[in-house]
Design a protein around this nucleic acid. Structure first.
Lengths: 153, 153
DNA sequence: CACAAATGGTTGCGCTCGCAACCTTATCGG
DNA sequence: CCGATAAGGTTGCGAGCGCAACCATTTGTG
């Protein structure tokens, strides 16, 4: 397991795990972009909002921000644009008139039902490069790192 | 291994691997930022340039861009700022007067020798949350994904 | 009941980044 | 040897983002 003491005087960035994780995330995003960007004209924040609202109707911007871990202004702008494109609708909440319930519109739901299988298939096609054992090992490590960095919900 | 057919009608973003990888990369960057940002006042592009030049003196901006996978304008601006702060020096190449050799200055090398062990220690302290078997499994999956996405050098 | 503090959400502003265009120097082809 | 093309690097510009400030509404407290 070679608990290598950090005595080296130089660093190959290509072997530095934080750098590799950033590179992998960027590569994965690009790999996925084909389905939501080129095909549906969504950017990442919009795609995340669509995915969140699709799985939980009538949620608030706050909920979206919390579950996507995006800044609330980023969420606000994504929602605004999706509303202009009439993919989502907003209704002021009766109990608390500060907040507004967000839901998919008719055409938004149509897009979602078309988009979702493509996104999941794209994820699968990415993970299929791993053997079952590799996948299991990778996901285990991923979970542990998420817990360590307190990234879970 | 449950080759789960993608029949579900909703998607929990929190279970979507591309999203989780983005979140992990962001978390890792922040975890690391303490050493290069708060302590040495470098941002990510500058830190990457320092790391690259530290391990390979007299390289060109082009080389840095290729090995860090950053856009050449991002590299250009990071180098410019590091030169203002006198952490690196540039000399026009004799053979090809378009390019300029980049190297660490005296104070730049001082910073590098102080920064490098801290960065490596920070990486270790992150990876120590994984058991040796988890680490090995995670790195194996990471490598395979990198190859699949053609992210290696 | 009134006023302070907190909360959901939006917006102005400055910063960073990538794209395209550009400048300079090298290289290639006739 | 000259003109076209390419290559190393920089810069103007627009888009996206986070921070801080803000508006509207609600909740807490004397």
């Amino acid at each position: 397991m070679t608990a290598r003491p950090t005595l080296e005087r130089t660093l190959e960035l290509a072997a530095f795990v934080p750098f590799r994780l950033n590179r992998l995330a960027a590569g994965t995003s690009q790999y996925l972009a084909i389905v939501y960007q080129e095909r549906f004209g969504l950017d990442i924040p919009q795609w995340r909002v669509m995915a969140t609202v699709g799985s939980k109707q009538d949620c608030t911007a706050q909920y979206i921000a919390a579950s996507t871990r995006m800044h609330k202004t980023r969420v606000s702008r994504a929602i605004a644009e999706l509303e202009v494109r009439q993919l989502i609708e907003r209704v002021s909440s009766a109990q608390d008139r500060r907040e507004r319930q967000v839901r998919l519109s008719k055409s938004g739901r149509r897009m979602y039902t078309e988009l979702l299988p493509l996104a999941l298939a794209r994820e699968s096609s990415l993970l299929e490069c791993l053997s079952p054992e590799q996948l299991a090992g990778f996901l285990t490590g991923l979970e542990t790192l998420e817990r360590f960095l307190q990234l879970e919900d």
